[in-house]
Design a protein around this nucleic acid. Structure first.
Length: 579
RNA sequence: GCCGAGAUAGCUCAGUCGGUAGAGCACAUGCAUGGUAAGCAUGAGGUCACGGGUUCGAUUCCCGUUCUCGGCUCCA
């Protein structure tokens, strides 16, 4: 982030935070009995939480917006004032939430209030010069929210809004929201017949339809091929494990809330796995390991089940059963620098292959409460830092933000609409090797504790698929498209030839369908176009005559006729190049 | 789980101020044999989410339940 970017961001936040004040003012004017709480700027705009006896309706929102326009038109100046604690208590005597915040402010810190017109709010600021600066805003929605985000506290009414320096930027933002709605993977998933979820058999559990299955298979095939190329081996482990395993791993102590109830098998409790790592460790422990065996890189497309509250389930992005593209790297201290660098380089290669080029790293270091020797933490963090630096990745440091068992790098990828998604995690673990007493024999003939790194590259196939659908708006590149080409006959007379063309292409590994239905050409073209098939191969009398296909591309229209073999070469090389 | 809004055909939605429901797309059948984004006609398809109440009568009104969607992480 440049200095200029920082400054712009601050200005936008100031504008939005000021807009939140104007909204609170409008609400207090219309509903004097509403209690104000807090109203910060957020990534997409701003919100303000109110304690009010009934929920705000769409009509209320329209009224509030109108009232806000009045306040903006009046161009009331924002006035900063520093007050004593005593005076602030007087000003906010009718606002219990403000008093609560006030009482928590440390002694000695200046207490500031901001006024515009008759409205006054306890606020650190800063604000824009006057309310007239907030011309381009819009109220978006109402939602419930808990005081301080804690469900034990009072439920408040939260009004979301957004504001921009200019109307043009606001309009652009609204268009972007519409575009995002059009790309919603839940809508495209149904329209393109990719997957479904139904509460009929259980919410948050995904059915992959044939077309979604084709895409998943293309992803998995590429994934496996690349893992082998990069020195990984692939494991398969069970869906269930005995309670003793999860006791040793600590999951039953720390993670039980996210695990499903046990089932009884021959008098022992078994749990459905929420993670794959204990099984990989069990594989490690089947023999005595030498430093000469390390590093071990073991990957698995492992399906895990985790309990998620019903209210948070969301299409493919938040589910209860999902397949992690998991891997565990087990190595010696001398190897970690290289291993981390390699895993990061590999991750970047994979993201690029799937069409994501804007990637940012988030590095989280040692928290207060942590297990493992400090020297190991230091070495691990150094390895992570070296790797991001060598990959020339932008990164943010989250000092103390790591898990208790190790530091990590998360990668966030930006999609075609500029939205950031947290996908890859590269996570050190100083806990499990201890708990399972993992070791290897070093060159010195002594037992040593190996380093262990968890890595989920795409994250989960379900979530990755959801993001991929939205990134491409359903128009997958040819190598991923469920149907890569459809042969369309002009009339029934070309059915046999169409089938022949399809079988030639299938021989070459192309996913091809035949549409020889008794429909008009235009109708079949439209349908293929709507289904976002990359290539339409029209065959009529002329093509039969010349043993050719008339190629139409999804993106650039009619490309003219060419011999079948020529088209086959063309699409096969396109697929090989991951286009 | 909590707050709010919803639930009508496979999908998107209309409608009934209480008298057992409609459209477009999709599907089926027939006609049309068509050269680059929707040919024509006919038909089938609904416990109006589920349970209870009020009523002569409830898909419609009331209560409850289930599920879906938007939030519940952004902190003066």
């Amino acid at each position: 982030m440049t200095e200029k970017g920082d400054k712009e961001l601050l200005e936008l936040e100031t504008l939005r935070h000021s807009a939140a004040h104007v909204m609170a003012d409008a609400v207090k004017r219309l509903f004097p009995e509403a209690k104000i709480t807090i109203g910060p700027a957020i990534e997409e705009g701003f919100y303000y939480d109110f304690d009010f006896k009934r929920p705000f309706t769409q009509e209320d929102l329209a009224k509030i917006e109108k009232e806000m326009h009045g306040i903006v038109a009046a161009a009331l100046p924002f006035v900063r004032e520093e007050v004593t604690r005593e005076k602030a208590r007087g000003i906010f005597k009718a606002e219990p939430y403000k008093i609560e915040i006030l009482e928590e402010l440390p002694e000695g810190e200046p207490i500031t209030i901001y006024r515009h017109g008759d409205f006054v709010d306890l606020c650190r600021g800063p604000h824009v010069k006057d309310t007239g600066k907030i011309s381009a805003f819009k109220l978006m929605s109402v939602a419930g929210a808990y005081w301080r985000g804690d469900e034990k506290n009072a439920q408040l009414q939260r009004i979301y809004g957004t504001a921009f320096p200019s109307q043009a930027e606001l309009d652009e933002h609204l268009v972007r929201l519409e575009e995002a709605a059009k790309r919603d993977h839940r809508k495209l998933g149904r329209d393109l017949d990719l997957y479904s979820t139904m509460d009929e058999y259980g919410g948050g559990l995904v059915l992959w339809h044939p077309k979604g299955g084709r895409i998943r298979d293309a992803i998995e095939t590429f994934w496996k091929e690349q893992h082998y190329k990069n020195g990984y081996d692939i494991l398969y482990t069970p869906h269930l494990g005995r309670a003793t395993l999860w006791e040793t791993s600590g999951h039953l102590d720390f993670y039980r809330d996210s695990m499903y109830s046990p089932m009884d098998i021959d008098g022992n409790d078994y749990f459905i796995k929420p993670m794959n790592c204990p099984f990989h460790i069990m594989v490690y422990k089947t023999q005595m390991r030498s430093y000469r065996d390390l590093p071990l890189r073991w990957a698995e497309l492992g399906t895990v089940y985790r309990y998620e509250k019903s209210g948070v389930l969301h299409g493919l992005l938040r589910v209860r059963g999902f397949t992690q593209d998991d891997a565990h790297i087990i190595c010696t201290p001398e190897q970690i620098d290289n291993e981390i660098r390699e895993v990061l380089r590999f991750s970047m290669f994979m993201w690029k292959s799937f069409g994501f080029t804007d990637i940012k790293a988030y590095l989280a270091t040692r928290p207060e409460k942590a297990v493992g020797e400090p020297e190991r933490w230091d070495q691990a963090i150094a390895a992570l830092k070296n790797a991001v630096t060598e990959e020339k990745l932008d990164y943010e440091l989250d000092e103390g933000g790591g898990a208790f068992y190790g530091p990590k790098i998360d990668l966030k990828v930006r999609d075609a609409l500029g939205r950031e998604w947290q996908m890859t995690t590269i996570q050190f673990d100083f806990n499990l090797p201890e708990r399972f007493d993992m070791n290897y024999i070093g060159a010195d003939g002594q037992r040593h504790r190996p380093y262990m790194v968890h890595r989920a590259l795409l994250g989960s196939l379900e979530r990755f698929f959801g993001v991929l659908i939205e990134h491409y708006a359903g128009a997958f590149p040819t190598w991923l498209a469920p149907v890569q080409a459809v042969v369309i006959s002009v009339s029934e007379a070309q059915s046999t030839y169409a089938a022949k063309v399809a079988s030639i292409l299938r021989e070459r590994g192309v996913r091809v369908d035949v549409d020889d239905r008794n429909e008009k050409l235009g109708f079949k073209i439209r349908e293929a176009q709507v289904k976002k098939v990359p290539y339409m191969l029209v065959v009529g009398g002329k093509e039969v005559e010349s043993q050719a296909v008339a190629v139409r591309s999804r993106a650039s229209g009619d490309l003219g006729a060419m011999p079948v073999a020529e088209f086959a070469d063309r699409i096969v090389s396109e697929i090989a190049e991951k286009k």
